[in-house]
Design a protein around this nucleic acid. Structure first.
Lengths: 215, 215, 215, 215
DNA sequence: CATGAATGAGGGTTCATTCAT
DNA sequence: TATGAATGAACCCTCATTCAT
């Protein structure tokens, strides 16, 4: 009754075979992400979702109670992809500077892979009901906070906490930016370049380069 | 038929009196921005727009042909507010470092004032038809480019062009971030603080602070 | 905000001209009663209602918010027809036996005119939301009670109150019966006959005929 | 193909074992009556029927071809309960007045037991196809007719045939009334009282009490 | 110019029924 | 025999748009 791990655990299905539920819901999410990318949530039809998922409208509603459930499912998946995978990467004990850089790099690579998902996150978040929206945002805050801590822990010289927080925030939106400004950025930078330069900026802010530029 | 200065010039109205057209369209835009902020473009009805504008649905359609026209009108206004005002601020001949910092500061203050508009820009851009969308994006690219040039021109030590471009981009999205992460950032930073720290980071990236911290 | 006289006063319409609202709602009610008679509320389509009312589905929903509102409108009309007209007939000061008989006769004539409406009342009452249902039933109870009082007041010899109540109830359902058993009763009785015999039974129950059969 | 004794004999099942068919259909009817009482036929789904019957939707359709078949099955059962049991009680040779009263009493007790079923009969009859509906109604007419004959046969003084017919009809609907006006009547009368008074009325109509009140 | 009643295509959702296992 | 996933016609309702006044 309480403590569901995922948003989607709260979405009831009339189908009993839970493997099938998972399989079909994966189809739904995959199809929906494609469609939401193109037209956004509101302009996408449930019929389109069903068709793109490979089954009929009736079947869609066996796995989902409302159209909003589909959005929830999508957000749940994105959350797991973005944040859970991010967690894997961030949640480390090794608090050396090198490790911090690795985390940042891993994060940028992740956002590169999940560009579409991040876009949807930005554009459809307001279509979620208030409480679900807050859950998603809360996750973000937690992640940012972890990066902030990592920055503090691994900064070569003592760093102001607020500065660390701001750097963490900057890193996050710069990751997102790679995705939703791709039409401009990705014409001018390769991912490698982008990562390298952004990391370099972080190092300069942390004033690492003044002391040891031999990186 | 071509060469209009503004998107809205292409929107036909059946009313002859062009002063009235402008007046009414201002009402429409003002009302729409309020509504779009709350519920987004798709979930806002034309009836709501008409009512919030202070006239009937019939009258609305005297000044606009379709609902999409309203969005165009809104984007046009936002564009003028954001980019044209930005242009005023950026478009300067004085290419000293100090002036660059003033530009950045002015930009952050501007995005603070226009938070809602920026949000709409992010969230409803995909509701625009392809060609209109590109016009908006093109404007952005131009602005970023100007900032890039300013950075190059005023950097104390020679700077790589791509680095400058990236810094410019970072500044832009960090401005946006102040708006759409306000629920988190504005709890922890005042606008003054935010600006000061972000500018400080830019300085560090430009390696100004290593030499002269007496700012 | 409180104290509406009729159920329908609580049904909101988006049309401003209240004369038009009344006119259109009359069309809706008239059409709906025809349809509900044939197929019942649940099997009648809103499109059918609109069409039978003489306008489009969109127009229907300008005068009504939900399908259930249509049912409410119908019940409201039936209530006014059955109970309010009944009230006119019953609510009298003259408490002679002759007057009682007139009331009964008037009631039977009324149910004859409103056969279809009474049928709908019986068959669709359970489609109403609980609270509305109770309002309708309450009206009935009041009416029955008035007839009971009239019986007590005009009975030639003292009559047990419960007997009076039961007689009143019997009269009511016998009125209804004339409508929903018409396929059988109306083949074998004219309305005049039916009324005369039923009244005669009442007289016998009141034991009037033992004393003076010269009616 | 013709001459079935019961409506349900015309309902085909794909199951061969006729004992099983009967058992399952009993489950279906029992479950359906409960559901129809609460929500009526149209608002009850086949899934609900299957579940309440204790098996799957697939199984339901092994014993029934359509949802309407379920209604037929229910009516068939109600018919057997109401009319067949009524027949037992009515179909007697002893044509004394006392026996008539016993019949009436037995009938009222029966309708008390079968309140819900009678309600369904009233409310869902129009959901039946025309021909089936007539069968049910025909049964009623027969029953009423039998009571009419009994009245004629046992009336102490000669009675007009139409009067007898009307009395019979009155008795029938007063039985039904006990069920569908229970929210009002059963608050004010016990079943015993109700029966006693109604029978007393019949006696008065038959003018028995004028001569011999020593009942 | 302004109004607002009328329109109907199209969206979300339900549910009786089928059929492969 | 029993199951339950799949189907899609059909339902209720919304809302952008038109046009007579």
């Amino acid at each position: 009754m309480e403590g569901e791990r995922f948003m989607s655990d709260a979405i009831k299905s009339s189908i009993k075979d839970s493997n099938l539920v998972e399989k079909r819901r994966n189809q739904i999410v995959k199809a929906s992400i494609q469609l939401f990318k193109q037209k956004g949530f509101t302009k996408t039809t449930t019929r389109e979702i069903a068709e793109a998922s490979g089954f009929s409208i009736g079947t869609l509603y066996e796995y989902v109670r409302t159209k909003e459930d589909v959005l929830l499912l999508v957000f749940d998946t994105i959350n797991r992809n973005v944040y859970d995978r991010l967690e894997e990467v961030i949640d480390i004990k090794n608090r050396s500077l090198e490790n911090l850089l690795k985390v940042i790099e891993a994060y940028y690579r992740l956002t590169d892979q999940l560009q579409e998902e991040v876009l949807i996150l930005y554009q459809e978040l307001k279509s979620l009901p208030q409480d679900q929206r807050e859950k998603v945002l809360q996750k973000e805050v937690e992640m940012v906070d972890k990066v902030k801590e990592a920055i503090i822990a691994s900064a070569p010289s003592p760093i102001d906490e607020k500065d660390a927080l701001l750097i963490a925030n900057n890193i996050f939106v710069q990751g997102h930016m790679w995705g939703f400004r791709r039409w401009s950025l990705q014409k001018q930078f390769t991912l490698e370049e982008y990562i390298e330069r952004q990391i370099d900026f972080v190092l300069r802010i942390l004033q690492v380069d003044c002391q040891e530029l031999n990186r």
